[in-house]
């Protein structure tokens, strides 16, 4: 464990806490894409298949349980909770996640480190995580008004993977044979997808104006 990875995990944890707080306290999910939340639940479900078979550390297991519980409860809130679901804008959140799931699954079948079910699922979860934010970014462009909590949520979600890139660089130079091209490239693609959001987020913060994405 290094400081970059710990910071990345804490930033990731903060993003789900910000989202859960928003939904739980103001009982609203306005501006949040259910499609992205469902994709994240699928990402964690396919990535943490080994949660009970491969014990790595208490920290690792606890964080996996937190991410699984939070992502599924957010999906539950947005689909089932009688008040929260009313603020879900299903007419705007129309991104068909099958267009993301199928290509990632096919790609994982061809590009993986070992052709086993767990490894292919793990690789699928990496590719899917890289693109899971797309429905959310599309929704932000459409709804245009981005409330602070949603902006902070997306920012933290992007920042965590950027910190992971620093972690991979650190591990590459400090651990012999630590090479995971698949992880690195999908993590880089994921972070680049946030690049334009970061640009507008930083500018809105610098000029102290409300965050607006161009149409």
């Amino acid at each position: 464990m290094n400081i970059f990875r710990l910071a990345g995990d804490m930033t990731h944890l903060m993003s789900v806490i910000v989202l859960l707080l928003k939904i739980h306290t103001i009982k609203s999910c306005a501006g949040i894409s259910l499609k992205t939340q469902e994709l994240y639940a699928l990402v964690f479900a396919t990535r943490y298949l080994d949660i009970f078979t491969d014990f790595i550390s208490l920290y690792n297991t606890i964080m996996k349980l937190i991410f699984l519980a939070s992502s599924f409860s957010i999906v539950w809130y947005m689909r089932q909770h009688k008040i929260v679901r009313r603020s879900y804008d299903k007419d705007q959140d129309t991104f068909r996640h099958l267009f993301l799931i199928l290509p990632c699954l096919l790609l994982a079948l061809f590009i993986n480190e070992k052709f086993t079910f767990k490894e292919v699922m793990w690789t699928f979860s990496l590719f899917l995580e890289a693109v899971a934010i797309l429905p959310q970014l599309v929704l932000l462009q459409r709804t245009r008004n981005i409330d602070n909590l949603t902006g902070q949520y997306v920012f933290l979600l992007g920042a965590y993977r950027a910190l992971y890139i620093l972690n991979w660089i650190y591990r590459y130079f400090t651990e012999p044979h630590y090479v995971h091209w698949i992880t690195w490239i999908s993590g880089l693609v994921q972070t680049l997808l946030y690049a334009d959001f970061f640009y507008y987020y930083f500018n809105s913060w610098k000029n102290n104006v409300k965050l607006q994405l161009p149409a």
Binding site: D9, N60, K64, N167, T183
Partner: peptide
């Protein structure tokens, strides 16, 4: 040998 430590990240 590929230890399970390969996937020691979240």
């Amino acid at each position: 040998a590929r230890s399970h430590r390969d996937h020691d990240e979240l």
